[in-house]
């Protein structure tokens, strides 16, 4: 198993059109997408993207269609050439790689899962899952053994001789996932991997991914337009709009402190009780004379805290970190305020 590696995206720009280089300076100086389109007929795909992705974390990039999220993920393995900027992985700039270097990089450092699966229809599940290894030049017996292990791991045992067209969408995406994981690359790129699946299967596949991540610890870049999905699986989330990052942070940051009205609008329908953690809402303990008896874990949800307080008629709970140390207090009113999203001063 390879060690996780981080990704650093620096000042990335993508302009679509006949002569993109000519307009980078203007865009850097502040020309908007609409202006660029109207005056020069070029489309601003991505504008000054800066994202640091920690090794072994799940970075969600979220936005509506047309926001540039699929364009952005394709820059990480350079399926799309940037107009300007850098992508630094293991100290090397992906943008500067030669053709051969890039091919080696794609073979061993990244694996990708696609919205429409991208499976080879003339190949069996087994041969699809083994594709990345085959391209690397691994011997047949060995690549089949590895591929079989991942086919079993994603729950497709018994289907290895089937063709993709014989499988449902959810099963096809499991093949896509097995193919990506079999590669054993430290970076996993998932381009709206679950968007084509129906909600139950999508939830199921999210669970598969989270479970797998516990074992394999990859650096995952996950594109989605579904906020619930983003909040569930993302260690960090970057919100994209019109090719620019408008906010990035943890799920808590985005729900509690939306950067602007657009984000606020986005998050207003979220089930805050489930998304928000006690640790993000609690107050410092030194403000209290007597600490409450009952306690709750810092990563429990607000909904759980409220349930516990309501059931036992408590006014506050002590918040404990995983080592059992008390690190704060969550009063009932603060929990309610966080849950409803009202900014009222809870504990006067």
């Amino acid at each position: 198993m390879t060690d996780p590696i981080g990704i650093e995206i620096r000042n990335l720009y993508k302009i679509f059109g006949a002569n993109p280089q000519a307009h980078v300076a203007a865009v850097r100086a502040g020309m908007t997408k609409a202006e660029l389109q109207a005056r020069h007929g070029h489309v601003l795909g991505l504008s000054d993207i800066n994202i640091q992705i920690a090794p072994g974390s799940i970075q969600v990039i979220m936005g509506l269609s047309g926001s540039g999220k699929s364009t952005l993920i394709r820059h990480i393995n350079r399926l799309i050439e940037p107009t300007a900027g850098e992508i630094v992985i293991e100290g090397r700039n992906v943008v500067g790689m030669s053709k051969d270097e890039l091919r080696e990089f794609r073979r061993h450092r990244t694996a990708m899962v696609f919205q429409k699966f991208g499976l080879l229809p003339h190949r069996t599940v087994l041969d699809n899952a083994a594709y990345g290894l085959e391209v690397q030049g691994m011997a047949e017996a060995e690549r089949y053994r590895t591929a079989m292990r991942w086919i079993e791991r994603v729950g497709l045992s018994g289907f290895e001789k089937s063709y993709p067209s014989q499988l449902s969408g959810g099963m096809q995406q499991r093949v896509g996932l097995a193919r990506a994981l079999a590669n054993d690359a430290p970076i996993l790129l998932m381009d709206e991997a679950y968007s084509a699946l129906d909600p139950l299967i999508r939830y199921d596949m999210q669970t598969v991914l989270l479970d797998l991540q516990q074992e394999v610890r990859k650096t995952i870049v996950f594109i989605t337009h579904d906020l619930d999905e983003a909040l569930r699986i993302g260690d960090r989330i970057a919100l994209l709009r019109d090719g620019s990052v408008i906010q990035q942070g943890t799920a808590q940051d985005i729900v509690l402190r939306p950067a602007d009205d657009y984000v606020a609008n986005f998050v207003q329908h979220v089930d805050r009780g489930k998304v928000l953690k006690v640790g993000a809402v609690m107050l410092a303990q030194h403000g209290f004379d007597a600490l409450p008896e009952a306690s709750i874990a810092t990563d429990a949800s607000i909904a759980e805290a409220l349930q516990q307080m309501a059931a036992n008629r408590l006014q506050a709970l002590r918040v404990q970190d995983p080592q059992g140390q008390t690190i704060g207090v969550i009063p009932f009113q603060d929990a309610i305020n966080a849950y409803t999203g009202s900014k009222g001063e809870g504990a006067e």
């Binding site: 393995n77 990244t110 990708m112 991208g118 499976l119 229809p121 990345g132 590669n183």
Partner: peptide, 10 residues
């Protein structure tokens, strides 16, 4: 899309 996938795997 199939070709893009083959590209992505190097």
């Amino acid at each position: 899309e199939v070709l893009e996938a083959t590209d992505a795997f190097g």
